[in-house]
Write a protein that binds this DNA or RNA. Structure first.
Lengths: 104, 104
DNA sequence: CAATATACTTACCAAAAGGGAAGCACTATC
DNA sequence: GATAGTGCTTCCCTTTTGGTAAGTATATTG
């Protein structure tokens, strides 16, 4: 992808979904497009730098699409691509597991 | 879990499954118990330190069980717990996604 | 009696990831 | 003319993660 070598498909997927914010951003976009500021509000602990850095990475990887409305003040929306949407089944399982695990 | 605070169930699951080796080890154990040395052979790029460190973490988290056969030379086996086995559906989806994504 | 095999641990170090604070661009509004 | 609003970027620093090399224990084998 970026020249990295993956041991197996699971390894590849983990590299896309791992990291502090990558997965959470994809998951936050499950309901449709969101603006930068909406994401920021939703992922409470993220800061500007990490958010834009991670969104840029996800865009390069073909997981999200960036739409700049060319307005002032700026308005930019992010959406999942088809590949991004296909990650959602993974997160649905993660949510179920996490919910179950945390009450055990 | 270790005092960390999770934003949501997905965040929790990502913390268990993320990291360089955690997910790959769980996935490698899908077929049943494996010895330390077998895991090491299978996860080619892992070194002793990372393998035992990660296994210890997974054991503390209740994802794997450690069985020491008290022999010399040592023989130790690792198995998925029930919670660990329930992670497998996640990895199955990851494998499918990764395989598809890498050929696009 | 030396070598082998196995599952670790320890000390040390390098790299990567993550984060804080501040600044920028630019229009509209007061 | 100052202020607000928004999406970034840059610089710098801390923390975390990952990795290498070497060592330990001890029954068994040659």
């Amino acid at each position: 992808m970026n020249g990295a070598i993956y041991y197996c498909p699971v390894d590849l997927t983990l590299s896309v979904v791992g990291g502090r914010w990558q997965g959470l951003i994809v998951w936050a976009l499950r309901g449709g497009p969101k603006r930068f500021s909406e994401l920021k509000r939703e992922l409470v602990a993220v800061n500007d730098k990490m958010l834009s850095q991670t969104l840029k990475l996800l865009a390069e990887q073909g997981i999200v699409t960036r739409t700049d409305f060319q307005s002032v003040p700026p308005k930019v929306e992010y959406t999942l691509t088809e590949n991004g949407r296909q990650l959602l089944v993974i997160f649905e399982k993660m949510e179920a597991w996490g919910a179950h695990y945390s009450e055990a």
